[in-house]
């Protein structure tokens, strides 16, 4: 297949993300990468679970966590996962405009999540003086949740960059795999969050 066919395909195949060898490589490689990310987050979860009682006389999880905010954040992120499924649905139907719209909604929800998370951290720091340096529990909490937040920031920047870069030219066999793996990344962020709200927040207030 020539460069021209990749950028201007005569017709879009059913699975444009896997139509080229580069696409197939990206698809497989990114799944493998997520396998590694699982171990990364497991190490952080394990550390958190080992240290969540080590408050060193400072604020404990029961004193800190409130569930209202976490519930809203969870709903935002879960919904953004569904909207990115919609985006990929339209990508496969070669409907670029609808894909961009759903990706836009995904980004908006993600930004909402991020805003709440920043507010939450701000709140802990200013009202409870609970920081990375307060206790081993504080270190573990900010590192685990912060790593997830960092993934959200990276995922959002990635999706936004892809949307802007391709806004004018639409879908082709070169960018379809990029959109696809970015959406996989976004789902994975949601997967991690499901465990964070369960293990950190829900188990934290018990």
């Amino acid at each position: 297949m020539s460069e021209h066919d990749v950028l201007n395909p005569k017709e879009m195949p059913l699975n444009p993300e896997k139509a080229t060898l580069e696409g197939k490589n990206k698809f497989i490689g990114f799944w493998f990468f997520l396998g590694g990310e699982t171990v990364l987050f497991a190490s952080l979860f394990g550390t958190y679970l080992a240290l969540n009682g080590s408050t060193n006389g400072g604020s404990s999880s029961q004193e800190l966590f409130g569930l209202e905010l976490v519930f809203i954040m969870t709903m935002l992120l879960l919904t953004s996962s569904l909207t990115s499924v919609y985006a990929m649905y339209h990508m496969k139907n070669n409907d670029f405009k609808k894909m961009q719209i759903w990706l836009g909604i995904t980004v908006a929800l993600g930004l909402g999540f991020l805003g709440f998370e920043i507010y939450e951290f701000y709140h802990y720091i200013h009202h409870y003086e609970f920081t990375l340096r307060s206790s081993a529990f504080g270190s573990a909490f900010y590192t685990l949740v912060g790593f997830h937040g960092g993934h959200v920031v990276f995922g959002l920047s990635w999706i936004i960059a892809l949307m802007i870069r391709n806004a004018k030219r639409g879908l082709n066999l070169y960018n379809a795999p990029k959109f696809y793996i970015a959406s996989l990344y976004w789902h994975f962020i949601d997967v991690v969050w499901v465990f964070i709200f369960t293990v950190v927040y829900l188990m934290g207030v018990l």
């Binding site: 080992a50 240290l51 990375l132 081993a136 270190s139 573990a140």
Partner: peptide, 24 residues
Amino acid sequence: VGLFLMMFDRLFGSGFFDPNMGGN
């Protein structure tokens, strides 16, 4: 992850491995 924790302990004052802060 181990290196990140050690970096935070050494450079940013966290207490993952510091028993004085409840670390291990």
